[in-house]
C-alpha cells in the first residue's frame, strides 16, 4: 500500500530538486501540476511558499486586439534590458464547444523571446468557474518562487475570472484603443474598477487623444480611495511610450508600497484565494454531478419549479452532512 505514496512523494521531491536548481523544464512541469490539479500540487505550492513574495506582479488586461501581448513584449524587453528577469503567464479562452484552445501569445512575443531569461507560459482558462484564477495565480507564485523579478499576468478582459487574474497582481494595467469603444464600454466591461494605470495603445489612430481625455474625465469623477490612475498614450508595436509605461508602473508600485496599499492588496489577494479554494473544496466534496443532475431532472419532470428543486437539493445535501456526524 505504501508504494504509490512513496512514488508520489519522490516525484514531488525530484520535481522540487530540479525546480530549486533552476531547471526551466521543472518550472514548466510544476505549472502543469497546478493546472491539472495533480494530487501533489498542494504539497508543491506549500513547499515553495517560503520563496514566494519577492517578485513584482503586473497584470495586463483589456479587450481582444488592444495590443496587450505587444505591450507585454515591450515591457519584458524594457525590464530585461535593465537586467531584471521576467516571467509571463498569458491566459487565453478555452473554446466552450470543443474544450480546446488556440494560444497565440507567443506570436507577438518574438522580440522578447529572443532575449534570454524571458519565460512565457500560455494557459487556457479551461472554462472553469473561478478555477482560472486559482491556476493562474498559483502559476504566478511558481514564477515568483523560481526567482523571476518581474512577473507579468496577461489576460483578455472579457470575463470576470479573467479580470480577477489581472486584478490579483500588485499593479494592474488596462490597455484600450480607440477601436475598443469609448470609455463607457470600458466601464461596462468592469475594467475601470481594476485599473491602476490606463494605456491607450495604437495612439497614432484617430480618437486616441479623445479617449485619453475621456478616461481622465471619468477618473476625475471617482471618489479617491486610491491614487488616481495615470492615463498614458503608447504605440507598443513601434516601441513608443513603452518605457514610459514601465516607469509609470514602477512609480505606482513605489507609491503603493509607501502607503501600505500594496501590503493590503497582497493580503486581499490571499484572502480571495482562500475563499475560492474553500468554495472549490466544498464543491469537490459535496457536488456529485451525476446524482444532482438525476435528482434535478426527476423533480423537474414532476413539474416542480427550478427554485424549489434547488432549495430541496441544498437541504438534502446538508442533511447528508448531518447524518454523517457534521462537517469533517
Amino acid at each position: 500500500m505504501t508504494a504509490p505514496l512513496t512514488a508520489a512523494t519522490s516525484a514531488l521531491e525530484d520535481l522540487l530538486a530540479e525546480f530549486r536548481a533552476g531547471k526551466v523544464g521543472a518550472l514548466a512541469r510544476a505549472i502543469s501540476w497546478v493546472e491539472n490539479r495533480h494530487p501533489q500540487s498542494g504539497a508543491l505550492l506549500d513547499a515553495v511558499y517560503p520563496q514566494v513574495g519577492r517578485a513584482w506582479r503586473t497584470g495586463v488586461t483589456g479587450p481582444p486586439g488592444a495590443g496587450k501581448s505587444t505591450l507585454v513584449d515591450g515591457l519584458a524587453r524594457h525590464w530585461g534590458a535593465a537586467g531584471r528577469s521576467v516571467g509571463l503567464v498569458a491566459v487565453d479562452p478555452t473554446s466552450p464547444f470543443s474544450g480546446g484552445a488556440l494560444l497565440g501569445d507567443r506570436v507577438r512575443m518574438d522580440r522578447a523571446l529572443s532575449q534570454t531569461g524571458v519565460y512565457v507560459r500560455s494557459m487556457a482558462n479551461r472554462g472553469s468557474l473561478g478555477g482560472l484564477s486559482l491556476a493562474a495565480v498559483a502559476a504566478a507564485d511558481l514564477l515568483d518562487a523560481f526567482g523571476f523579478q518581474e512577473v507579468l499576468l496577461e489576460t483578455v478582459g472579457v470575463g470576470q475570472a479573467e479580470i480577477d487574474v489581472a486584478a490579483a497582481a500588485d499593479t494592474t494595467v488596462v490597455v484600450l484603443t480607440p477601436a475598443s469603444g469609448d470609455s463607457v464600454q470600458a466601464m461596462k466591461a468592469g475594467l475601470m474598477e481594476v485599473a491602476d494605470l490606463f494605456v491607450v495603445n495604437k495612439a497614432d489612430t484617430p480618437g486616441a487623444e479623445r479617449l485619453q481625455t475621456e478616461l481622465e474625465d471619468m477618473l476625475g469623477l471617482r471618489r479617491a480611495a486610491a491614487p488616481r490612475p495615470e492615463v498614458l498614450l503608447c504605440r507598443a508595436l513601434a516601441d513608443q511610450g513603452v518605457a514610459e509605461v514601465a516607469q509609470a508602473i514602477e512609480r505606482r508600485r513605489a507609491a503603493d508600497q509607501a502607503s501600505g496599499r500594496l501590503e493590503a492588496r497582497r493580503r486581499a489577494r490571499d484572502l480571495a484565494r482562500v475563499r475560492r479554494l474553500v468554495v472549490e473544496g466544498l464543491r469537490a466534496e459535496l457536488w456529485h454531478e451525476q446524482e444532482i443532475q438525476e435528482a434535478a431532472a426527476r423533480a423537474l419532470a414532476h413539474g416542480e419549479r427550478p427554485d424549489e428543486v434547488a432549495r430541496k437539493l441544498v437541504r438534502s445535501i446538508l442533511e447528508g452532512i448531518q447524518r454523517n456526524g457534521g462537517p469533517a
Binding site: 480546446g100 484552445a101 488556440l102 494560444l103 506570436v107
Partner: peptide
Amino acid sequence: VAASLRDRGMEVIYTG
C-alpha cells in the same frame, strides 16, 4: 492544422 486540433479539444500553442 492548429484550428483543427483545437476543435478536437487540444490546447494548441502557435509559435508564429
